[in-house]
Write a protein that binds this DNA or RNA. Structure first.
Lengths: 223, 223
DNA sequence: GTCTATACTACGATAGAC
DNA sequence: GTCTATCGTAGTATAGAC
């Protein structure tokens, strides 16, 4: 390229790259938002790329600039949902930072449960995995692993504070607590999908179920 | 038709009707069996009539002699599954006919749970209802209603026998007991779908969970 | 009651122009 | 990065012959 001539090709500045990648992220987010909408309307497993493109005013092939396949969209949704659960739970626990471990555990469980009922599409993806051919990638699954790890940590804190028996922080304790909550969610979403958390016949039982857990692992109780 | 001439059209005898309707029933059963196979292989929501026909050595249009639509097949499967749950539970309880109500309740729950894990396709249909566009008909749903009714009756018997607090037979008691079991099933099927009931990290907790329930409704316990 | 033929629609994904 | 065009496949369902 001869010196003294400004390049006819526009130089890509840092700002341009920022703008471009921000634009790209926006499009990706919009795709996921629209996919979520459609899943809510037609069923999670009924997602179609054509429908997504139609609603976005795009042509279907354009979607392949952002996701290499339909399953990649499901995977991104899974990751998004798992991250949201992690965030929601952390936020609820942070709000009770000064409270005892059991209070924080209850707050985390309640917030997560409330979010799950308000977001049935994500719940179905995360907790049931009923989309034919879809399995989440390790990356998308990571926040879910972290959520369970943090649950275990909190249970251990309750044990250390003398609020729970040491068994509560075992594999069984973790499995039991997740199962108790999954049961309420499962029944609520299957039988009263359009009822709010507060009014649900099943989710209403959350405090009771948490009591059951705490009582079961009451320290000194030879279970 | 002139007398003295045997009809050239073969008279349809009672036996013929029997044979014909039996044959028809067999075909219907085979369709449902094959549909079940395919759902197990490809995913419940991925059922395709063409695939059913292919595997049966039929042409797709022939299926419409037996089911008016794909959803009708889902509905029949739902009904079949709900009836199976009812039967399995009743059989387990009948085997403990002479035992106390709580023992029978535990037996029923265990048998049902075991069956559900061994039949994940039906479980997904019955307990999650994640097939886009499908809702079970009242007829198909009837055995499920009956199962819950019988659960309530059994809880009431336990109350009457002084084994449980009267609250156990309330709406909340029923919802709680179904949720506890649904939780184990849900977690087991989503996280360890190919592990047996006996070895499952979650289903293994069934006795514990039943204890939780019984303890919660222990008579005289002011809960 | 099974078939052939077909209508109709839709889908996921790729190639290549602009 | 978006488009048009298209491939290849699949699907549900119906009409009508046999």
């Amino acid at each position: 390229m001869p010196l003294g001539f400004p390049s006819p090709v526009k130089q890509a500045s840092i700002d341009d790259l920022d703008r471009r990648s921000r634009r790209r992220r926006q499009t990706i987010d919009e795709i996921l938002d629209v996919a979520h909408e459609l899943m809510a309307e037609q069923g999670v497993a009924a997602l179609s790329l054509s429908a997504v493109a139609r609603r976005m005013g795009m042509q279907p092939p354009s979607l392949y600039q952002y996701f290499p396949s339909k399953m990649a969209i499901y995977d991104a949704m899974f990751g998004r949902g798992a991250q949201a659960v992690l965030d929601v739970r952390r936020a609820a626990i942070a709000r009770k930072a000064k409270a005892d471990p059991l209070t924080r555990m209850r707050a985390g469980a309640t917030a997560m449960c409330r979010w799950a009922i308000a977001n049935p599409v994500y719940s179905q993806l995360l907790f049931w995995r009923t989309v034919p051919g879809f399995e989440p990638s390790t990356e998308a699954f990571a926040p879910a692993v972290e959520t369970v790890a943090e649950l275990r940590t909190l249970l251990q804190a309750a044990v250390d504070a003398g609020q729970l028996d040491p068994d509560a922080a075992s594999d069984d304790g973790v499995a039991l607590s997740t199962s108790l909550i999954a049961g309420l969610l499962s029944q609520q979403l299957a039988n009263q999908p359009d009822v709010t958390f507060d009014r649900g016949r099943f989710t209403r039982l959350l405090p009771t179920v948490l009591d059951l857990f705490v009582e079961h692992y009451r320290p000194g109780r030879n279970s």
